[in-house]
Each structure stands twice: as structure tokens, then as C-alpha cells.
């Protein structure tokens, strides 16, 4: 007898937490065979598992390697399911442009934030490493981003974050686009100093921060519309 939808979702979620890439792909194929909604399987199965892995990361049960391998499993499942997603169901909560600021190539932290944001359903545009401020602004404008996420590990490149915010002002986009920043030398104090909308100390917190910034923006938007 075929497994129930709920059991399949639970197994998908477990395969991510247990970092079983092949199992995640096999289970995703079962979802397709059983004609279960692919979007729901990602949301309640694979992404759910990634959220659990992220919580284990926050609790110092999982570390960077475990999170990366759990994400491998999540993406293996998504790869199978992607072409089966119904056209109307993939409404992302928001669009984010993310990258490591110019002069820095350390991207482990940025990659973790990307994984968590994708697990939360965000449409993430990853500009990679060593990204000039103007490229962040141009991309955000092009895709009508809700949020720009900036990362750096180096103290020398922190000024690039302030430059992105200045350029958003100059382009008249600062009201529309939220800016969140993170990285080892970054602090809440630094975020306040350069006028960023939020700082998070780790990848899981970055996911929650993005949702919070989006909610703030909606509330402000509805206030100014009324």
C-alpha cells in the first residue's frame, strides 16, 4: 500500500536532518509517482527538515559541515520535484539579493544564510563573493528585491556595506528595500551606525530576521497606502 502523504513528508524531513542525499531524492521520486503536490512536499518535507537542521545548528548539535550536507539532501530532493511544481503554487514570501561585499571571498556564512532563506521559501539571488556595491543595487532594482543581504568576514571590507546603503539612497530605493547585514566583525552597533535595517548573529537568526523585515515593510506599506 502506498504511504500516506504525511508519512512521506515526515520521511523527507528526516532524510534532510539525517543528511541522506540519495534517500531524499528517492523519496522525492515517490512523491512524483504518487502524484502528491510537489510544492507541499518541499514545504512540509524538505524545507521542514532544513528548518529542523537549522534549529539543531542553533542548539550547537549541528555545525557548519552538518548544515551543508543537510542542504545537499534538501537540494537533491528539490531537484527532482522542481519540474513538477504547479505554476500557481510557488509564491515566495519575498525576493532577496545576497552576496559577500567587495574585497572579500569568505562565503561560508553567506552560503548558510542562503540555504536557510531558501528553506523559508524566499527567492534568493546569490551574487557570490567579492561583489561591488553597484552590482547589489543594480540587481535589487532589476528583480524588484524586497531585501538585500550583505556579508563579510573581514574588517577591511565593512565600509562596502555602508556604501550599498548610500547608493540605495541615491537611487531613491532605500524606502523600498530593506538591508540586513552579518559576518564575524559585524555587530548590532555597526548595523545601527551605517543605518542597516537589521543584523543577525547566525544563519538561523538571519532567516527569522528576513521574515520580520518583510512583515515590517508590509505594515509600513499598508499604513502609507491608507
Amino acid at each position: 500500500m502506498a504511504k500516506s502523504k504525511e508519512i512521506l513528508f515526515q520521511e523527507l524531513s528526516d532524510s534532510v536532518v539525517e543528511m541522506e542525499e540519495n534517500k531524499a531524492a528517492d523519496l522525492a521520486r515517490e512523491v512524483v509517482e504518487e502524484k502528491i503536490d510537489a510544492y507541499e512536499a518541499i514545504d512540509k518535507g524538505l524545507a521542514h527538515g532544513m528548518e529542523r537542521a537549522g534549529r539543531l545548528f542553533e542548539e550547537d548539535e549541528y555545525f557548519v559541515p552538518e548544515l551543508l550536507i543537510a542542504a545537499d539532501a534538501m537540494y537533491a530532493g528539490i531537484e527532482v520535484l522542481r519540474q513538477h511544481i504547479a505554476a500557481d503554487s510557488s509564491s515566495a514570501p519575498g525576493r532577496i539579493v545576497i552576496g559577500v561585499v567587495e574585497g572579500d571571498t569568505h562565503d561560508i556564512g553567506k552560503n548558510l544564510v542562503k540555504i536557510i532563506l531558501e528553506a523559508k521559501g524566499f527567492e534568493v539571488h546569490d551574487l557570490g563573493r567579492d561583489v561591488p556595491p553597484s552590482v547589489f543595487v543594480a540587481k535589487a532594482k532589476e528583480i524588484k528585491a524586497d531585501i538585500i543581504g550583505l556579508s563579510t568576514l573581514m574588517t577591511t571590507t565593512m565600509a562596502g556595506m555602508a556604501r550599498v546603503i548610500e547608493m540605495l539612497h541615491e537611487a531613491g530605493l532605500r524606502e523600498r528595500i530593506k538591508v540586513m547585514i552579518g559576518g564575524a566583525p559585524i555587530s548590532q552597533g555597526f548595523a545601527r551606525k551605517i543605518g542597516a535595517d537589521g543584523y543577525s548573529a547566525n544563519a538561523m537568526a538571519a532567516g527569522d530576521l528576513a521574515l520580520k523585515l518583510l512583515a515590517q515593510r508590509r505594515i509600513l506599506g499598508s499604513l502609507s497606502a491608507s
Binding site: 543528511m19 557548519v64 559541515p65 552538518e66 551543508l68 550536507i69 545537499d72 561560508i108 552560503n111
Partner: peptide, 11 residues
Amino acid sequence: GADNLSRWMLK
């Protein structure tokens, strides 16, 4: 690369 070394340590 940190990602490769992570994968190899665990797998």
C-alpha cells in the same frame, strides 16, 4: 574548500 572537506569528513 570547506564545503568539500565537510562532505568528505561526514561521508
